[in-house]
Structures are given as structure tokens and as C-alpha cells.
Simulated scan of single mutants.
Amino acid sequence: MTSIEAVRGDLTAETTDAIVNAANSSLLGGGGVDGAIHAAAGPRLLEACRRVRRTSWPDGLPIGEAVATDAFDLPCRWVIHTVGPNAHRGQTDPALLASCFTRSLDIAAELGATSIAFPAVSAGAYGWDPADVARIAVQAVREHPKPGIELVRFVLFGDRLLDAFRHALT
């Protein structure tokens, strides 16, 4: 059985097998979680993302899709990049947001990861309500088969997000 938890913390310090990056479709870095992960992983992460763009996703990673790279200078093994829907641009389909979590779990399972840490995808600059993100994320993770994954951790940077995820987990 998979353990699912919510903690307050720094995603870039997680020692789970994989962490999930709330990326933009370019995969070339940005602000918030994306910027912090790129800064902590070092410049090789950007080069790995450029390679993904050249080889697999030349038009950018679609919303709700996920792709993995090595983690380089981070304490985890892999970074799984996913693109959340942007509510400010009218992207409010809960299925697209749920797909960020389920596709990331699919990639983690393919890699052989036994643990994964998620941020609150789309709850920051992309304008989704934290309670909605928490409800959709927790439901998506609970309903996903998660083969081989023993721990799913939501790592949240503020009390409002942590409270929303703890409520969704009850």
C-alpha cells in the first residue's frame, strides 16, 4: 500500500527517488518551483531539458504531460517535469491538472522509483485555488495504481497549501 502524506518543506531538499517540477512547456526554467529546481540542480539540468526539447518534445511539453531527466546536483535521482494548466489563461479543466499527477506517477513507475515528491502544481503563478489543487491532486494519486511506488509526498512551501492538502487527505 502506498503512503500519501503532506509536509511543509523545500522540494529541492527532498531525498525521494523523484521530485516533480511544475515546469512551463518550454522546459527551460522559469520562476517559483521551476526556478528553484533549476537553480539547485545546476546547469546540467537545463542542458538535459534542451535535449528533451530537441529529441522528444520539439514544440514543448503539453499541459498534463510529464517527462523525466536526471536530477544532477539535487539529492533525488530524477526530476519529473510536468506542465500544469494556467487558470489565468482559461485553462481550468480539472482533468488536465489531474493528468499532471497521474502522468508523473506513470513516469516514476517506469523509472523504477519507489518514492516521489510533488509540489502543488498550478497553485502558484498559474492561479488555481489551493483547495481545488489539493482535492484534485489527492484524488488523482489515490485512484492511480502506482505500481512499485511506496511513498507519495506533497511538499508544500506555505501554511495555506499545507492546510489544503492535509484537509484533502482526511
Rank of each mutant, 00 (worst) to 15 (best):
A113C: 13
T55K: 14
P85W: 14
S25F: 12
V152H: 00
P75T: 07
T102C: 11
R142H: 03
A40D: 00
V141I: 04
L111C: 09
L111Y: 11
G31W: 02
T92E: 01
R53D: 11
P43Y: 05
R89Q: 15
G112Q: 02
S104Q: 04
D106P: 09
D159I: 11
F101E: 09
E14Y: 09
I80M: 03
S99H: 04
R160P: 14
D73Q: 12
E5N: 09
A125S: 11
F118L: 09
R103M: 13
A117V: 00
T114W: 06
T102G: 08
G9C: 03
R103I: 11
I136M: 00
N21W: 03
A117R: 02
A41H: 00
D159A: 05
A164M: 03
K146P: 13
G60M: 09
T15R: 11
S104V: 07
P119T: 05
Q91L: 13
R53Q: 05
F154M: 12
E14T: 04
V7I: 12
D59M: 13
R51H: 14
V121T: 06
C49Y: 02
D93A: 07
R89A: 15
A113T: 13
V33A: 02
F101I: 14
G31S: 07
V79M: 09
R51D: 08
L105E: 05
P85S: 08
T69N: 06
R44A: 13
W128D: 00
R54F: 01
T114E: 14
T55E: 15
K146T: 14
P130F: 09
G84F: 09
A120Y: 00
Q139K: 15
H144Y: 05
L111I: 10
A23V: 05
T12L: 08
R89F: 15
L169Y: 07
I19E: 03
P43N: 10
R135Y: 08
E14W: 03
E5H: 07
V79F: 00
R77C: 13
L46K: 07
L151T: 12
L45H: 04
A87T: 14
V155G: 04
F72P: 00
S26W: 10
A109R: 06
S115Y: 08
P62K: 06
A113R: 12
G124W: 01
L46D: 11
A109C: 14
A168D: 06
L27K: 11
L111D: 13
A113D: 12
D106Y: 13
R54Q: 10
L162H: 11
R153F: 07
T15P: 01
A13K: 10
P75F: 04
I4S: 13
D106F: 06
D34C: 11
E65R: 07
P94A: 14
P119C: 05
E65P: 10
G30P: 02
T12F: 09
V79N: 02
P119H: 05
H88P: 00
P43I: 06
I149Q: 01
F101R: 10
G9S: 11
R103Q: 14
T92H: 04
D163S: 13
A108Q: 05
T55S: 14
T2C: 05
A131M: 04
E143F: 02
G31I: 08
C76M: 04
R53S: 10
F154G: 02
T55L: 15
V33N: 10
V83Q: 08
